[in-house]
Computed example of a mutant assay.
Amino acid sequence: MATENELFSAVDALLEQVAQDVLPPPAERRRLRTAAGLSQEQIATALGTRREAVGNWESGRTEPRPPQRAAYARLLESLAARFPA
């Protein structure tokens, strides 16, 4: 039998995986960035990627991959809390 802590750890791992996969639609990504007054270059620098990649994420041409995806999702979630639609 698994302990309560082991079960909680397994659930936390699932929740972390779900959080990484959830990104708002591309247009909302751009809205959140501009509402915060951030440039694509600033986000790219923070995430260790190129400005063109952020532009592609905002246009829907490509999607971020791990580990940037998790960090980008975290950024967007925080911006959404500060700048609701």
Rank of each mutant, 00 (worst) to 15 (best):
G60P: 09
S59W: 06
Y72V: 06
N56K: 14
L76M: 12
A70Q: 14
E63N: 09
T49G: 01
W57S: 02
A73W: 04
E77Y: 01
A71V: 10
E58Q: 10
E52K: 10
A70M: 07
R50H: 12
Q68R: 15
R74C: 09
S78F: 03
V54M: 03
S59Y: 07
E58C: 08
Y72G: 02
L75Y: 04
E63M: 09
Q68G: 00
L76E: 09
R74P: 00
R61W: 06
P64A: 05
E58K: 04
L76R: 06
P67R: 07
S59Q: 13
R65A: 10
R65V: 08
S59L: 13
P66D: 07
T62V: 11
A71Q: 13
Q68A: 14
P67I: 03
E58A: 06
A71K: 13
Y72E: 04
L76A: 08
P67F: 02
E77D: 13
R51T: 11
Y72H: 07
G55E: 06
A73G: 12
W57P: 00
L75V: 11
A53R: 07
G55T: 07
L76F: 10
T62I: 10
L75I: 13
P64E: 05
L76H: 08
R69W: 02
S78E: 14
V54I: 15
R69H: 04
E77F: 00
P66L: 10
S78Y: 03
E58N: 08
S59C: 13
R65Y: 03
R65N: 02
E63T: 09
R51N: 04
R69Q: 13
A73Q: 10
Y72Q: 03
W57R: 03
E52M: 09
R69V: 01
T49N: 01
A53M: 13
W57V: 07
N56L: 12
N56E: 14
R61T: 13
S78H: 14
R61A: 14
A53K: 04
A70C: 05
E58M: 08
P64W: 02
L75D: 06
S78Q: 15
T49A: 02
E63R: 12
R65E: 12
S78C: 06
W57Q: 01
E63V: 03
